[in-house]
Design a protein around this nucleic acid. Structure first.
Length: 362
DNA sequence: GAGCAGGTTTCCT
DNA sequence: AGGAAACCTGCT
């Protein structure tokens, strides 16, 4: 027998009940602002024959006590692999996390894309985009960190919180890290030591006992006070989170907004991404800008845009929002980064029909 | 090196 | 009511 634990992962196996994904859409689902606990790692091509440049990535993700790897197979199927110790739990929880019991193609088709050319473009560019169902409490924590922060930084904060204050839940054995590890300061993930244990996020009960000063040390900035106060409130009110998750959407949103640091946008994000409330319509600066430019809502305030969104897109407004969001960011990315657009200071969205078929960036 | 970033709260007219 | 200012911090 081997004296060293080389690989603690189960073999990759398909996740049942999923339509095909392109790598780009998978990336948008896992790393497009819904969740902040996924990290892309390069495929281990030393493992065997084919050098599939298609499925050239593996995602490592966590939620609650689960650790899982996902990769898109060549045929578009999504395959997962879990650390062996957690395999049963992961196999049980992954379908819920990915919401495999909902008919997403049908839900998407029921959006008003036939009368909304811009939404139709979003659907065409991100076929198969779906909304995750993350643990409610963790989703709240993530979005309390999100105020005026970009995805990369939110991920850093959470990774730091987990590493310093979360329960160790497994080992990153067998992982590949992208060309060494980022500077140690860039955050603890991926861990420089491949055998370093991964950590779950701290529970709210744990957070309630951590001095705010230590939270600040996790790069939380002014969010530390909100998180600390929220933690103490939740710890002092057992069952409050569960009750809130179970309330109808408007009541749930109102309850969440009682928490310090939680306004309409964050409450909607928590309900959309952590409670399956597809009627929630988070309005951030991207959506605000997109709705102004493409729906003639210039000058509208976030609350007004949210109301418009729910009225215009219907009971699945949150799903529509995700398409608009993904699309808007993609337009900005492609307008800003490729060679040639150096003179443009900021990719303000433009009027009119943007985005026909974007030339593939071969 | 000033300015800004998937926001909320507070303090002002 | 409605609109700035402040809040932390790291990165461009």
């Amino acid at each position: 027998m081997k004296s060293v634990v080389e690989n603690t992962w189960t073999p990759f196996a398909p996740v049942a009940g999923l339509p095909p994904f392109t790598p780009a859409v998978l990336s948008e689902i896992l790393d497009g602002g819904q969740a902040f606990r996924w990290h892309r790692t390069p495929q281990n091509k030393a493992g065997g024959g084919a050098p599939p440049n298609f499925a050239s990535e593996i995602w490592l993700g966590q939620w609650s006590g689960c650790v899982v790897r996902l990769r898109p197979a060549a045929d578009g199927a999504l395959e997962f692999s879990a650390s062996t110790a957690l395999a049963p739990q992961v196999a049980r929880e992954l379908p819920r996390y990915l919401v495999t019991d909902r008919n997403w193609p049908a839900l998407t088709d029921s959006l008003p894309w036939r009368s909304d050319a811009h939404l139709a473009r979003g659907l065409a560019v991100f076929p198969g985009l779906r909304i995750l169902r993350q643990p409610f409490g963790e989703t709240l924590l993530g979005f309390l960190c999100s105020a005026t922060k970009q995805i990369v930084q939110i991920k850093q904060m959470l990774a730091l919180l987990a590493e310093r204050h979360g329960r160790p839940i497994g080992r990153a054995s067998g992982l590949q890290t992208p060309k060494n590890s980022p500077p140690a300061q860039g955050g603890p993930f991926p861990p420089a030591d491949l055998h370093a244990p991964l950590h779950a996020l701290p529970t709210w009960e744990a957070l309630a006992t951590i001095p705010e000063k230590e939270l600040r040390a996790c790069q939380l900035g002014f969010r530390a006070r909100f998180i600390s106060e929220t933690a103490r409130f939740i710890a002092a009110h057992p069952g409050w989170l569960d009750e809130t998750e179970a309330l109808p959407y408007p009541a749930a949103q109102a309850r969440l907004r009682e928490l310090p640091g939680v306004g309409e946008k964050i409450a909607d994000c928590v309900l959309l991404f952590g409670a399956g409330r597809l009627e929630a319509f988070p309005v951030d600066t991207w959506i605000l800008q997109a709705m102004a430019a493409r729906y003639g809502l210039a000058g509208w305030k976030p609350a007004q845009v949210a109301q418009f969104g729910r009225a215009h897109f219907g009971p699945l407004a949150g799903l529509a929002q995700q398409f608009l969001f993904a699309h808007e960011r993609r337009v900005a990315r492609e307008a800003g980064s490729p060679a040639g657009a150096a003179g443009i200071p900021r990719p303000r969205t433009e009027q009119g029909p943007v985005v026909r078929f974007m030339p593939q960036k071969n």
